[in-house]
Design a protein around this nucleic acid. Structure first.
Length: 427
RNA sequence: GGAGAGAUGGCCGAGCGGUUUAAGGCGCACGCCUGGAAAGCGUGUUCACCGGAAAUGGUGUCGAGGGUUCGAAUCCCUUUCUCUCCGCCA
């Protein structure tokens, strides 16, 4: 959520930024400014009337104590009249505040100046590419075929106990899941990220804090009996640890990481692009978050990009980094880098990580602030990245490292998995 | 799930309709005192919003949300959380 004061002081920049996103409701911006002016005027009057009422009450109290009941009753009558006005002004103020906060919720974050205008994925800029693209060999299999052949994933079992999109990992497949989680979390904690183990169900306030509500209501699973939501990403409980917090500048940057399963309804997704591990209702992910001062958040973004780069390099996967264009970026982000790993069999790039600087967009909703050295209180900046999401990493590992009778593991994973290669099950 | 007790500032803790503009203590910051320090004394010390160039003034804030009243930390209702006991349980 943007701050009204920011919109007021940077009206042109805001409009320009929204243009980059092809955000259509730009007239909302001027309406917000107008409503805010009105709101201030009403609040001023409201405060004045309340002050008057407080004065009267104090006087009435004194009169009663001095047994001057007659005069007290006169003041009491005038106070009643004043009260009617106060209620009217209070309602008016409330309505204006409601309208403003609802309008502000509709406005996305303003992109950084480096972010290019664009409508869709085609307009994203490729800014880096590493690792040789694997060539398409004879008899090469997709990861879902490999998972079946090596009995790493049992899709039918998942359907039997839950439905499609809920894979069951077995044997070396299950062990590999555990190894990947362990490897990623270790990699993050070694880089200074503090590990959290978090609830996987959150209340509505938390879902609102990170922006899942109200915009993405339908994409989350909801437990109606207790009014809780299954988390679509670890970012939700992780960021909400800091809701309503006032930090000291010395505490920043805060670097934190968590492993969680993620639950997404993904309603209306069909076809080859969602085959296998490409899109699931439940998957595992290790997330990293940084909370910084406004001055350092873009440095932190670069640091996180480097961090994820290192992680992918250590797995020897060919990947490229994109800077997303305005139209493809998430609602809360000011700048996002996507990491994509190449799948030779599927002939396309798979998104495995998304690194975003959300500036103060989330921290405003969360009321996450810090006191700087001069004692001034301001909003923190928040950044998040996947490091990493498991399914597509597993998919690319299987597809890129496959041989006829075995699948090699990258060196980094061997000690965590306890084996050097995935082998055919003994039938 | 049942019964009871509670939630007050950075922390402890009093207040249970009107000199509360939240006592008192601890902590912290600044000043005085001192050769230096301790003690002592003095001043300040939540956060949000509104007015003001600023100094500073106003409003709200005693877990949260409603209500009663001219006036609520205090009374009533709803709700969340914490503690104790019982029950159930990995």
């Amino acid at each position: 959520m943007l701050q009204v004061s920011f919109i007021r002081e940077n009206r042109e920049k805001v409009l320009e930024g929204l243009e980059k996103r092809h955000f259509s409701k730009t007239d909302l911006i001027d309406k917000i400014l107008e409503f805010d002016k009105l709101r201030k005027r009403i609040q001023f009057q409201y405060n004045e009337r309340l002050a008057e009422s407080n004065r009267l009450s104090r006087e009435i109290g004194k009169l009663f104590q001095n047994n001057q009941e007659k005069q007290a009753n006169v003041l009491r009558d005038s106070s009643a009249i004043l009260k009617e006005r106060i209620i009217r002004l209070g309602n008016e103020l409330f309505e204006h505040e409601q309208w403003l906060s609802r309008a502000l919720l509709e406005v996305p974050n303003i992109p950084h100046e480096l972010v290019k205008t664009g409508r869709s994925a085609q307009d994203n800029e490729i800014i880096d590419q590493q690792g040789a693209l694997p060539s398409l060999k004879e008899g090469i299999l997709t990861h879902w075929e490999l998972a079946k052949k090596f009995q790493l994933i049992n899709w039918e079992l998942g359907v039997q106990i839950s439905g499609s999109g809920f894979p069951v990992y077995t044997g070396q497949g299950a062990r590999l899941q555990r190894a990947l989680i362990e490897y990623f979390v270790n990699y993050n904690t070694h880089a200074g990220y503090l590990e959290y183990a978090l609830p996987h169900l959150v209340n509505a306030t938390s879902a609102q804090g990170t922006g899942q509500l109200p915009d993405k209501e339908g994409q989350m699973y909801h437990v109606s009996q207790d009014d809780l939501y299954l988390i679509p990403t670890g970012e939700v409980p992780l960021m909400n640890c800091f809701r309503d917090k006032l930090l000291q500048e010395q505490q920043l940057p805060l670097k934190i990481t968590t492993y969680t399963p993620c639950f997404r309804r993904e309603a209306g997704s069909y076809g080859v692009h969602v085959r296998g591990l490409n899109r699931l209702h439940q998957f595992d992910k290790v997330e990293i978050v940084q909370i910084t001062t406004p001055e350092t958040s873009y440095e932190a973004l670069e640091e996180m990009v480097k961090h994820v780069k290192g992680l992918l390099n250590s797995l020897n996967l060919p990947f490229r980094i994109l800077r997303l264009c305005g139209g493809d970026m998430g609602f809360t982000s000011a700048m996002t880098y996507d990491f994509e790993v190449y799948s030779a069999v599927q002939g396309r790039w798979l998104e495995v990580s998304s690194v975003s600087n959300c500036t103060n967009f989330q921290t405003h909703r969360l009321k996450l602030r810090y006191k700087n050295k001069a004692g001034k209180i301001q909003l923190c900046h928040a950044l998040n990245a996947s490091a990493l999401a498991l399914p597509r990493i597993l998919a690319s590992l299987l597809e890129n490292y496959q041989s006829e009778d075995y699948i090699d593991l990258p060196e980094a994973l061997v000690s965590f998995a306890g084996f050097k290669k995935i082998t055919l099950p003994i039938s």
